[in-house]
């Protein structure tokens, strides 16, 4: 479903992503881990078409994000780390706009919007201007907006930041349920227990280079630390001194 082929991105002399190679099949929850500045957000921005790779290509369900960005975008639901909303639109108006952008007619959009409002528990505030929302409310609205067109791929950049425990549970359940129904999830996160709990596979990136791809169990075996937590494994894998040895 997601195919990242030898993708490289440079910012001047700095190599942000180096020859990244990833294949993520349909229905998989993939957690992308790495320290700050490792290249996670750059990779996500290339996947959603905000950045253009210097080398290599990214395909979403066979659609190249550079040569055919509209078809690729039509298959993606994207949740950025900082959710931007139009302050002077209500939540419902924002959902209507987003549904329309993905080609839904008003008649098609209305029931789907109502469904998402219910799923994400937006009823209490969805008809208020979004400038009055808290961060958690905004995040839930952005999640609803990302799901309103029933994407095939959901890309999340730090989805749990600012969410209360109930909302976190809601998101986890949703990701599990939808991935079981065929949704592919690509998620960058620093919340390691989340990755451990819901990810089918994890990828660890450091200084733009992919250090590891596989399941948490495979990582344990590879590090020969069968009792270690993901946190311990991750710290070992991304530790500068240890890696240098």
């Amino acid at each position: 479903m997601i195919s990242i082929n030898n993708v490289t991105k440079r910012y001047d002399d700095k190599l942000a992503v180096d020859q990244l190679q990833l294949e993520i099949p349909r229905g998989e929850v993939f957690a992308f881990l790495g320290p700050n500045g490792a290249g996670k957000t750059t990779t996500i921005k290339m996947m959603v078409g905000l950045l253009i790779p210097d080398e290599g290509c990214i395909e979403i369900d066979g659609n190249n994000v550079v040569t055919d960005p509209r078809s690729a975008a039509a298959r993606i639901g994207y949740i950025p780390d900082q959710p931007h909303l139009y302050d002077k639109l209500t939540g419902r108006e924002f959902l209507e706009f987003m549904a329309g952008m993905y080609g839904a007619s008003d008649a098609e959009a209305a029931p789907e919007i109502d469904r998402q409002i219910e799923v994400f528990d937006l009823t209490a505030f969805v008809d208020r201007l979004s400038e009055t929302y808290s961060h958690g409310m905004k995040q839930r609205l952005v999640l609803a907006a990302a799901m309103v067109h029933q994407p095939q791929v959901l890309i999340l950049d730090e989805p749990m930041v600012g969410l209360d425990p109930q909302s976190m549970r809601l998101v986890k359940d949703l990701l599990k349920e939808r991935s079981a129904a065929g949704l592919t999830v690509f998620m960058s996160t620093h919340t390691l227990p989340l990755a451990e709990e819901i990810a089918d596979r994890i990828g660890v990136i450091r200084r733009g280079e992919l250090q590891f791809v596989g399941t948490v169990e495979e990582l344990k075996r590879a590090q020969n630390r069968h009792e270690a937590s993901l946190e311990g494994l991750f710290l070992d894998l991304t530790n500068e001194d240890a890696s240098a040895v």
Binding site: R70, A74, M101, Y102, G103, V148, H149
Partner: peptide, 19 residues
């Protein structure tokens, strides 16, 4: 809402109307 209808894309006129 079917994703297939989406991949065909919306017309430029519809897009302009949304904006």
């Amino acid at each position: 809402m079917a994703t297939n209808s989406i991949t065909a894309g919306i017309s430029q006129a519809k897009e302009a109307s949304l904006f």
